[in-house]
Amino acid sequence: MSTDSTYEHHPAHHFRDAEHEVEASKFGLWLFLCTEILMFGGLFVGYAIFHAMYPEIFIAGSKFLDWRLGALNTVILLISSFTVVMAIHSAQTNNKKWVLINLYITLACAAGFMIVKYIEYSHKIHDGLLPGKFFSYTGAEAAVQNLPLYFSFYFMMTGLHGSHVLAGMVLISWLIYRAHKGHFGPKYYTPVECVGLFWHLVDLIWIYLFPLLYLVG
């Protein structure tokens, strides 16, 4: 670990000052989050429409999911959101060691989330609980008409969310790399703040996905 304590961030030349850069970065990031909300929104609206039309599919489908694994993943994501804000807090109070520790815990939580998802996915794939024509489950519950539709929603929504978790892991790794170089301190922590905002949105979407897919049915 090479900590370069002499690092000083200079705002890019098209910004008036550091404050201007922070504001522009966060403004841009919020616009991006808006497009994310609308992208996931399409799936949520689709879910609402088909849930209104065929509630029995969703009741039958949600019984195939283990709510304990969903709840575990909710807790993991909430803790990781907390460690991200604590990483920012540590940067603000110039505690570089705790910036790193918090970022490492966040990365570990993200990996934990994906491991739980892997367990869930491999179980579904093994049982043939798949979208559309790939559905090959033959148990008694398969008698519910159009049941594969539930798994189309399940895999699309959790898959899109999971790909965001993977993207978040790449971004957090980049933060860890820069934190090791000693880039973040009270004067400059914009990347931690922006990746943090993205990570909280991933958490926010899961807060809605968990009850919709695992519990409501």
């Binding site: 919020w30 989050l33 808006c34 497009t35 909300i37 609308l38 929104g41 949520f44 609206v45």
Partner: peptide, 10 residues
Amino acid sequence: VIFFTGIFFL
């Protein structure tokens, strides 16, 4: 404002 604009259109 940005956030609620997104939520409004959703």
